[in-house]
Amino acid sequence: NMTTNERRVIVPADPTLWSTDHVRQWLEWAVKEYGLPDVNILLFQNIDGKELCKMTKDDFQRLTPSYNADILLSHLHYLRE
């Protein structure tokens, strides 16, 4: 019986294949993992993996503070390698 913190996010390895639900799961995981403040996951609700991967730093900064944008982008970049 796992707690929420221990729950593994199971999403496709390639972020471009993510559904909007996968994006939400990834964001929820990242918020907990990195202790990100002020991430409004609802702002990302219509973004799927293909859109997420096209987003620039400016795009991320429209949805979340700069600090969060940096961490989310670097993790996304890591996943795409």
Rank of each mutant, 00 (worst) to 15 (best):
52 L>A: 01
14 D>L: 01
33 E>V: 05
71 I>R: 15
14 D>T: 03
61 Q>A: 12
71 I>P: 14
16 T>D: 07
72 L>C: 01
20 T>N: 08
76 L>D: 00
12 P>V: 02
63 L>E: 01
65 P>E: 08
25 Q>N: 05
56 T>W: 03
27 L>P: 02
57 K>S: 11
54 K>H: 08
19 S>V: 01
52 L>S: 00
58 D>W: 06
61 Q>I: 15
23 V>I: 02
52 L>V: 03
65 P>M: 13
21 D>V: 08
1 N>D: 08
43 L>I: 05
27 L>T: 02
50 K>H: 07
71 I>G: 05
13 A>N: 14
65 P>Y: 15
23 V>P: 01
68 N>R: 04
62 R>D: 12
46 N>I: 03
13 A>T: 15
5 N>D: 14
61 Q>H: 15
21 D>K: 06
31 V>I: 12
74 S>P: 03
58 D>P: 15
61 Q>G: 11
16 T>G: 10
48 D>R: 05
44 F>V: 02
55 M>I: 03
21 D>F: 13
14 D>H: 06
26 W>G: 00
71 I>F: 04
62 R>V: 09
35 G>I: 11
39 V>M: 09
14 D>Y: 01
53 C>H: 02
64 T>W: 08
78 Y>D: 15
28 E>V: 10
50 K>E: 13
72 L>G: 00
37 P>N: 14
75 H>Y: 07
54 K>S: 14
41 I>D: 06
38 D>Q: 09
50 K>I: 07
22 H>R: 02
7 R>P: 13
63 L>N: 02
11 V>Y: 15
57 K>D: 08
53 C>W: 02
16 T>V: 13
33 E>F: 10
28 E>M: 11
32 K>Q: 07
37 P>L: 12
81 E>Y: 09
14 D>M: 02
46 N>S: 12
52 L>C: 00
6 E>M: 13
66 S>R: 09
21 D>R: 09
49 G>Y: 00
46 N>T: 10
5 N>R: 10
60 F>W: 12
41 I>M: 09
37 P>V: 11
4 T>A: 07
72 L>F: 10
49 G>V: 00
21 D>I: 10
61 Q>E: 14
24 R>K: 11
44 F>N: 09
45 Q>N: 05
8 R>I: 03
21 D>L: 07
43 L>Y: 08
27 L>I: 08
24 R>I: 06
52 L>R: 01
43 L>R: 10
75 H>E: 06
29 W>L: 05
10 I>L: 09
68 N>V: 12
58 D>F: 08
47 I>M: 10
4 T>C: 11
51 E>F: 04
30 A>H: 07
43 L>S: 13
44 F>R: 04
22 H>I: 02
49 G>A: 01
69 A>S: 03
78 Y>F: 08
7 R>M: 13
78 Y>V: 14
33 E>C: 03
4 T>R: 06
81 E>T: 03
57 K>P: 10
60 F>I: 14
22 H>F: 01
58 D>Y: 12
54 K>I: 03
15 P>R: 01
12 P>K: 05
18 W>N: 00
37 P>R: 12
68 N>D: 12
74 S>Q: 08
41 I>F: 11
46 N>E: 13
78 Y>K: 15
67 Y>Q: 14
8 R>F: 08
38 D>G: 11
57 K>V: 07
57 K>Y: 02
8 R>S: 07
53 C>T: 09
78 Y>T: 15
58 D>N: 05
22 H>A: 04
56 T>H: 07
58 D>T: 08
15 P>E: 01
69 A>T: 05
73 L>W: 10
57 K>L: 08
59 D>F: 02
49 G>E: 01
63 L>T: 02
79 L>V: 13
75 H>N: 14
14 D>S: 03
4 T>D: 13
47 I>N: 02
29 W>E: 15
35 G>A: 13
52 L>D: 02
81 E>H: 15
61 Q>D: 10
29 W>D: 15
7 R>F: 09
4 T>H: 06
26 W>Y: 12
6 E>V: 06
37 P>W: 07
77 H>I: 15
24 R>D: 00
41 I>Y: 09
9 V>F: 14
64 T>P: 02
81 E>N: 15
29 W>Y: 12
1 N>M: 08
43 L>M: 09
7 R>D: 13
67 Y>P: 13
45 Q>G: 10
21 D>P: 02
35 G>P: 03
7 R>W: 09
6 E>R: 08
46 N>Q: 06
31 V>Q: 08
49 G>N: 00
73 L>E: 04
54 K>P: 00
30 A>T: 09
74 S>D: 09
61 Q>L: 11
67 Y>A: 12
48 D>H: 04
30 A>C: 07
69 A>G: 07
51 E>R: 12
1 N>E: 10
31 V>W: 03
55 M>K: 03
29 W>I: 09
54 K>T: 08
80 R>A: 12
49 G>C: 01
48 D>C: 08
62 R>Y: 06
10 I>V: 13
54 K>E: 14
